[in-house]
Design a protein around this nucleic acid. Sequence first.
DNA 1: AATGGTCAAGTCAGC
DNA 2: GCTGACTTGACCATT
Length: 299
Amino acid sequence: MKIGYPCINQSLLCRSSRTFRLASYSDERLILTLEENLRCLLEILRYNRNHGIFFFRISSDLVPFASHPICSVDWQDAFKERFSALGSFIRDNQMRISMHPDQFILLNAKDPDIIDRSVSELAYHAEVLDLLGLDLNAKVQLHVGGVYGDKKASIERFIDQYATLDESIIRRLVIENDDRRYTVKDCLFIHERTAIPIIFDSLHHQVNSEGEIVSEVFPDIAATWESHDGIPMVDYSSQEPESRAGKHAVAIDLPDFLAFTEDILPFDVDIMLEIKNKEKSALIAIAALENDDRLVRIR
DNA sequence: AATGGTCAAGTCAGC
DNA sequence: GCTGACTTGACCATT
């Protein structure tokens, strides 16, 4: 069981997600920014290793405008060695990596242009993981998409689009239940038709489900991960008190976290903490699990 | 140097 | 019809 956090390390001064405005695009600026982002990514990964954190989500902004038509830099080739060196560091330390394209990426859109842009963006994400030389347990997690007033038809569009994707994307892609539209049950239905693995999000399930008990539904979710996909990834957050339902907590609620791990035991999973204070909560969770004798129940 | 409006991309709920 | 929320900051024009 690895514990991780997404994209940003607040203890370090650098960010691996620096970007800039489209209006100020130049090839030179893209190269300088990517150089800086890769340097910082290594710094974050070193911090993680030194602190016993072995799960990390790489920011989608690592390569700004990578899938935008304005980008004509062959960054894949220019930074090949850098990606390869980063990948060696990740593999040598047996780290788990994920990426999470943001809300604009919609495989089930009705507008073919939106689908085209989405597929390009997914190809970019898969390419980053390929350039790092990571095996198939490094995943790109995506929400199912919009409902467009007809969920059934929108699920069918997702399934149809998924079938047209290149194998280089399919082997990396997993779907996640979201907080307003597609539930775990919807994801399981899509899995039956596509074999796509499901990444379970605890807070989204809390605010958007058909009442399934986590400990009862989790075995079905875990079974969507084949052995080459690695053990299941899950996203965990608790609800921030006195805020909108679904708002991610600022700091980890340790009793809630331990209750969640109880729900998913005895499955071994890697847990991404989607908590605003990032690595601080990861360190607390890791320390709490260190001497937890429940973990011997993991199979 | 500080400020605050605005930023590639989409959907949807709530006003 | 517009705004804010989403995993959320941070760029950058203007003063």
